[in-house]
Design a binder for these strands. Structure first.
Lengths: 346, 346
DNA sequence: CTGTTAGCGCCTTCAT
DNA sequence: ATGAAGGCGCTAACAG
């Protein structure tokens, strides 16, 4: 039955321990810990000292129970791009520690289970709210069910704006428009797009921006030049091969994210089509892979981490009206784009 | 002041609500929820029904407070490889939901702050324990400080075995040995290694296995052929270039992880050295990037997710004695390895 | 088999 | 400026 070694801290100190050590009531300790006004400076100092000495940290669960105030927030994701998820996590974690909240992760295994899982999570932990990241934020019925259960929500990059729900986004349409324009400015006129999955709002926006740029430049929209992937590297392989084997293949391909753009490059390489000499490629996200593939990807830097951080802010601030915020993006030009081959030029 | 819509659930039901609805005492409800024996089937049914109707979920915080039993577990990581982190998370989350625990994430910004951060997290949330993943599990003094505070620990792939702490690992030495042997079997005799950072236990093991294989094959160890990276893609670039510009460059390079192996390939490509014709490359991890780069990487599949899941098991099981477990790996041969160029053959 | 009485650690009235 | 009750939602003894 050898118990803890001599110098051990034993079980964590409680508010009672501190009160006893500082010779005050627990209420006074409570006041000090919560930075309430009505405490004489010297008393406060004494309490702080005792707390310090005992290494006291308020038990957030007891605190939450008593005050009804939450200390957990749920981060919900199911994005196939691990870079995206990672960036979301980094942004959320940074802000959460500043806000004194802890993040519990939720990765619903399917959209069907999501509602049940999240309702359970929320009921069990009485958390401050949920941050929904793409594409789970667009799962049909999810938001309504959650709102119905009185769960606060902040959605990152939702497909459709909604009142009643805080949201943070960036202008995907504009970004897609601009990066397409970059291609057009280089002389490309036959440009293909590998769209993302319909379940992501971003997929639509990026396709919209793409089409707008073409139209605006007087380039006809050719349905033959549209393909769809699921944002994973693999999903871009077959569609790219099909595009490149077209009778009139594109001189540039806009992939809806970097993973798929990497797939485009891999496929081009496999077919012996050099990038960017014979094929320009652009991606979206500026994920690590953008500078791992060769040539490096021309892409759009999304402020993913910042969006997650802002979503957290909106969640805890959320007094009533739902706020919507928009963050800026950057277009980053790298080696995967060039002027199209001469023989294609008109 | 428009309040919740008619069909709203309002605030979550409590055990009292259920007891009232089922016309029993709250203790009986408690018993049913905890699946204790002594409840008449029909009573149990009635309670279950009421709980169902009210959509009741026990408040884990209240439960934890009262029972002293935790419902949170901390997952600590600071690995630069996002694939590694992702796999760890996936494995841990899957198991945690099976165990009815929630995971709170902790990513200490520095090894120095780690102790403080984690002690605070543990004191605040009274969690079941911490899962330490590489390299944070090897931070000097961390484990002692945590143990001192009576925090249960499970360490994934620690550098050094420790009593008193549950640990899950795989045989990195053996894996490195085997994959090096694969290179040797193909005819390579001048093989370089890009080691991982000294802060990772795995770095040492993999280097050890590598050296063992060379020695065992009668190949002299040439210090010139060792370089070091930090497991990131970028960190492999300069070292690789240096290796390839050697008077007697290696015909094969063993990078301690896939990200760095991708860096090796990128550098080789930049220098016009074709892989695998003139240079064979092997990695470690079988991360997504292994099949994104071209040629695909010959690598070692680590059971990362499984290790995390097992670590969780050990954490909650942890009756007293620390257990250590070892999981199996696989060597996966892909396109990045071949026999060395003829002119190098003896 | 079921209900009663405490109390987990803390915050919220209300007093003083 | 401080303290004494009461209770958050739940489980641990003990009763019956």
């Amino acid at each position: 039955m050898a118990r803890a070694p001599s110098g051990s801290d034993r079980s964590p100190a409680t508010i009672t321990d501190v009160a006893r050590a500082a010779d005050v009531s627990i209420k006074t300790v409570s006041r000090v810990m919560n930075e309430e006004k009505r405490v004489r400076p010297e008393t406060r100092a004494r309490v702080l000292e005792a707390a310090q000495a005992l290494n006291y940290r308020p038990n957030v669960m007891a605190r939450s129970l008593a005050a009804g105030r939450p200390f957990l927030v749920g981060l919900v994701y199911n994005n196939p791009s691990i870079h995206y998820v990672n960036a979301i996590q980094v942004g959320a974690m940074k802000r959460s520690s500043e806000l004194g909240l802890h993040i519990v992760m939720a990765e619903p295994d399917s959209a069907e289970n999501a509602i049940t899982d999240l309702l359970q999570l929320a009921a069990e932990t009485r958390l401050a709210g949920l941050i929904l990241t793409p594409p789970i934020g667009d799962a049909p019925g999810l938001i309504d069910a959650l709102l119905q259960a009185d769960i606060k929500l902040a959605v990152v990059a939702p497909a459709a704006a909604r009142k009643q729900v805080a949201q943070v986004r960036m202008d995907d349409v504009r970004a897609a428009y601009e990066i397409t324009q970059l291609l057009i400015a280089k002389g490309h006129r036959r440009i293909a797009m590998i769209k993302g999955p319909p379940s992501h709002g971003a997929s639509h926006w990026r396709a919209t921006g793409f089409s707008q740029a073409l139209t605006q430049a007087g380039i006809p929209i050719d349905p033959e030049l549209f393909a769809t992937g699921d944002f994973s590297f693999r999903s871009a392989l077959a569609p790219t091969e099909k595009l490149l084997r077209l009778e009139a293949p594109p001189t540039a391909i806009f992939a809806s994210n970097d993973d798929m753009a990497a797939g485009v490059i891999a496929t081009a390489m496999k077919l012996g089509i050099s990038v960017p000499e014979r094929l320009s490629v652009v991606g979206f996200d500026d994920s690590p892979i953008a500078t791992i593939v060769w040539p490096h990807l021309t892409t759009v830097r999304q402020p993913i981490a910042e969006m997650a951080a802002r979503a957290l802010d909106l969640l805890v601030a959320g007094d009533g009206e739902a706020e919507a915020e928009e963050l800026a993006f950057d277009i980053i030009e790298r080696g995967s784009t060039a002027t199209p081959p001469a023989f294609v030029k008109k």
